[in-house]
């Protein structure tokens, strides 16, 4: 079985200022292991909502999400924490690094809830930073790094726990072209060498060109 993620009939509605907005409408997607996929669509099409639900950061109104055949129980906070900690990685548009921690400490942070020893944790974080080409920036604080470097730290952080799936919400949106390409090279390389699956929400054509699979959403509806 090569199926990593199976989304079936996913719907999500938001109420804003008395209006009801259907962010996702009966979306069904399947994603294979080791894939490099993207969800595209205009602003407000439901890309981020889809990623948030897959990432267990939000709950669907209806439908189901299965990770490696196991359906996610969105009402079991302990299991959700476990999934986020061990099976998923996140890359945010604004990097979201912790400013009081160095690059290597930021990468270590998701491993705090693991059973790794201090030295094992540090070794994993250093390897992840090395993999994204930041071996010489380990002790730098986020404010001492460029935007591109910060996002690569975020990629290292997402990968440190060796997750099955890394979710990226517009990861190149705040990067210049050079940094964006560098980041894409790094992620593509990691996808191929580590076999980690990537799923991005984006309308950046640079990502869409390189994605093996692209899902398009419009007004919460998956376009065939």
């Amino acid at each position: 079985m090569n199926n990593l993620l199976k989304i079936q009939g996913l719907s999500k509605t938001f109420s804003r200022g008395g209006d009801t907005v259907k962010a996702l409408d009966n979306v069904s997607i399947s994603l294979e292991k080791e894939t490099f996929a993207a969800v595209s669509g205009p602003s407000g099409s439901g890309k981020s909502t889809l990623l948030n639900i897959v990432g267990t950061l939000d709950r669907p109104d209806s439908g189901s999400v299965s990770l490696e055949g196991e359906e996610i129980d969105y009402f079991n906070e302990g299991k959700l924490e476990d999934i986020r900690s061990n099976r998923l990685g996140f890359i945010f548009q604004d990097f979201n690094l912790i400013p009081v921690l160095s690059a290597v400490e930021n990468v270590e942070m998701p491993l705090y809830s693991s059973n790794l020893s201090t030295s094992e944790r540090r070794e994993k974080a250093e390897q992840a930073l090395d993999a994204v080409g930041l071996a010489d920036r380990m002790e730098h604080r986020p404010n001492q790094l460029s935007g591109g470097q910060q996002q690569r730290v975020a990629v290292a952080r997402a990968l440190a726990g060796t997750p099955e799936l890394v979710l990226g919400d517009e990861p190149t949106a705040n990067l210049d072209t050079k940094s964006a390409f560098l980041l894409l090279d790094v992620m593509e390389n990691l996808n191929q060498t580590l076999g980690t699956a990537f799923l991005f929400s984006t309308h950046d054509p640079r990502i869409l060109e390189r994605a093996k699979t692209v899902f398009t959403l419009e007004d919460g509806v998956l376009q065939s």
Binding site: L57, G78, S85, F90, N96, P110, Y112
Partner: peptide
């Protein structure tokens, strides 16, 4: 708040 959201997205528990 955003940092708290980020840290929780890594699976760090509320209690912690």
């Amino acid at each position: 708040a955003r940092e708290i959201g980020t840290i929780r997205a890594f699976g760090i528990s509320r209690i912690r």
